[in-house]
Design a protein around this nucleic acid. Structure first.
Ligand SMILES: [Mn+2]
Ligand SMILES: [Mn+2]
Ligand SMILES: [Zn+2]
Ligand SMILES: [Zn+2]
Lengths: 146, 146
DNA sequence: ATGCAAATGCGAATGATTCTTAATAATATT
DNA sequence: AATATTATTAAGAATCATTCGCATTTGCAT
């Protein structure tokens, strides 16, 4: 219950009531530090003794995304959405197609490209979605030795 | 039935039989030049008088992706997959969040970034998924005048 | 033309996500 | 602290996208 006040503030900033479930989801998202599916969150909470309905997990996530406190996107070759907290520092991820591990990478290589798109196409860029996939260091090694 | 031989070759290159349905889907994908959902393809074929089962559409698309003749991915805020032919020139898309129009953009700004990731993380990059979203030229104008 | 493997139709099954409604909990007010 | 107001939640049904199973048809090599 330490950083609880932190979440309360965050929720207030989005005009949202501070509830046990919302706090628990924010905490799980913060603790894990990689994008998670609704069901993964549901199971994590359950393990932590927080009883919650799966549809509530979905509803809370939807709300967080709406209020711009979280982001929702799809990983390559997954037919379910994952969610992560919006960080102060915008980030992307490396997805290992073999072991499915996710490696967060801070920073973004696209500022210049977005300017170019605005100039060339008259498009007003609001954001982007970038996921890089391949083999992580561990899985690359194994592949080499073949 | 003009460029039909073209598709026949393409399919042969993937060890696939040339069928009416596969040719029709390749043709629809080529003609439209933007990523389409399975259902959109299904409806396009229907309009062109090609009777096909929706599950066959899914199966054909799955096969094309498997043989690396097509790509499957998700657009931001859509809970369904879209498909497009693999082009000689790798491309990305601008998605207008207002009118949902898609604008293909040839070329890719990520070569240098991927090298950097390989160096810094020992990750072997196999590919990426990048979609940029915002307001298209038309929708930007309307927004300005508010 | 014949045979066989591959492709398809069609409906059922599955999986993810959203919706509906009644019950409950969080804040504002007294 | 009790009450009123309103947002939130549980539970399961409903919906939507996608995959599966199996009987039938089709493409293609011989
Ligand atoms: Mn970025
Ligand atoms: Mn690219
Ligand atoms: Zn790996
Ligand atoms: Zn637009």
């Amino acid at each position: 219950m330490a950083g609880n006040e932190h979440f309360r503030q965050l929720l207030k900033s989005g005009n949202l009531k501070s509830t046990k479930h919302r706090n628990a989801i924010l905490e799980a998202l913060e603790k894990n530090d990689v994008p998670l599916t609704a069901e993964e969150l549901y199971l994590h909470l359950k393990e932590d003794g927080v009883s919650i309905s799966l549809s509530t997990v979905y509803r809370i996530l939807e709300t967080l995304v709406e209020r711009n406190l979280a982001a929702r996107f799809n990983l390559p070759d997954e037919n379910k959405a994952v969610y992560e907290l919006k960080h102060d520092q915008h980030r992307h991820h490396l997805l290992c197609v073999k072991c499915r591990k996710l490696l967060p990478v801070d920073g973004c290589p696209l500022e210049a490209y977005e300017k170019l798109l605005e100039d060339r196409f008259g498009f007003t860029v609001k954001g982007h979605q970038l996921e890089v996939f391949g083999y992580c260091a561990d899985c690359s090694e194994k592949r080499d030795s073949k």
